[in-house]
Design a protein around this nucleic acid. Structure first.
Lengths: 225, 225
DNA sequence: ATAGTAAAGTGTAAATATAACACTTAAAGT
DNA sequence: ACTTTAAGTGTTATATTTACACTTTACTAT
């Protein structure tokens, strides 16, 4: 119906995971020209019969084998010459997923690997910039609501949660104050089981409440980053 | 170089202005089918030889006659059937501009009109949703940094600034506390001139400092919205 | 078995920030 | 002279933040 020129659209996903007290992202060896064999984010075309969200979900699911991955749009990257192979606009998403033995296998079968965020190699095109912005948005979201549901196991201790926050912001949160702040949000529930692997005394496991959406528009952590 | 199908891309701009103590946005009568003559946001195609930012800037400049309009991306709207006329992905931006006598004329010459945000008529497609999200993002930004530079005259009183914030959040900020908070940010400088139009005593004019970028990542106003 | 250890968890006190509201000041209009 | 209105300052109670110190628990090493 309209008379105008179409443009190629892709999604690129900054997939965050958490392992060994480190925030990591998933990187791929690019398999087509240009920049074949260089490291890149997970990406894919947006088809005419799907929304951008759907495309991103599809791409993520193909590579990780997981459904219902948590995603959030980061930004649109549309500089005319950002991709030497043609005029391509990319919508960047960040995604959060647990790193488990199972999906590690699936991921590796696609020759993808987990890299620590804070020692990032050079990526193709504007992908390093995408990562920076994704990290910035992740941090911003982590100050507004309590994140971790998608990065930690179902059951986790407050130590694990705090270490996740330490890894995200690259700061040391005060153990006592962090605990009190987190519990005051009332989005976690304590379980009767203790984790004895990380301390002699043993720490109670917690999990996110089923209903518990926190996230009013106010800040819960004040951090400089 | 790539083999894939292109998609039509547009930008839609939620243009905010401020007049008569009201936050307003610019609406247009759509001039093409489908939904001809219905109210819509300012929009336009993204061409192959320009970035999405550039397209938005171009569209804004054409209609308002202003260069360097402040813009911020809001979101991507890409549901497959959002536009009955075809498969069109739209990138929404909000823009801030002063409502002056001059640009009022330019704007009206394009048969656009300023409508108060809080009594919004029905708009085409998903444009009402775009407005909601734009307003939400504007509010979020207004809690993180002091806005007003693009919506108020170069010189303004703290009363004017406070009324702008009242209009944006639909609440009444406390005069004394608002003043103290705003001045503590040190992004405004007091001028030697007073405005006597709004009070008998006269209030000092202020302006935004040249360098003065506030905007660390922390919240300056706590408001529920 | 006892002492040392390391994180779990609680407590506290000073410093800041917030919120509500009272008060003083200035000048214009009657 | 008096009233009015916003400008601008001050005050107090409460809440939040920050930086620690302290107690508890149970495993580990001697």
């Amino acid at each position: 119906m309209y008379q105008h020129e179409g443009i190629l659209i892709t999604v690129d996903c900054i997939v965050f995971g958490y392992e060994d007290d480190l925030l990591k992202i998933l990187l791929f060896k690019r398999w087509i020209e240009p920049s074949k064999d260089q490291l890149s984010l997970l990406g894919g075309w947006v088809n005419k019969n799907e929304s951008v969200d759907d495309a991103s979900r599809r791409v993520l699911q193909t590579i990780t084998g997981l459904e219902n991955i948590y995603m959030e749009m980061v930004d649109v990257f549309s500089e005319v010459h950002r991709d030497p192979g043609g005029r391509v606009i990319s919508i960047a998403y960040y995604a959060l997923m647990p790193i488990t033995e199972e999906n590690k296998k699936v991921v590796e079968s696609h020759s993808a690997e987990w890299y620590p965020v804070h020692e990032m190699p050079e990526l193709i095109f504007d992908h390093n910039q995408m990562l920076e912005q994704a990290l910035s948005k992740l941090r911003s979201n982590a100050t507004t609501s309590l994140i971790g549901k998608q990065l930690l196991p179902k059951r986790f201790t407050l130590l694990q949660l705090r270490k996740l926050y330490n890894a995200i912001f690259q700061v040391e949160f005060d153990p006592g104050n962090f605990r009190k702040k987190v519990l005051s949000l009332k989005v976690l529930e304590q379980l009767d089981i203790k984790d004895t692997s990380e301390s002699k005394k043993g720490a109670y496991f917690y999990r996110f409440k089923e209903d518990g959406s926190n996230d009013n528009n106010n800040q819960i952590f004040k951090v400089d980053y």
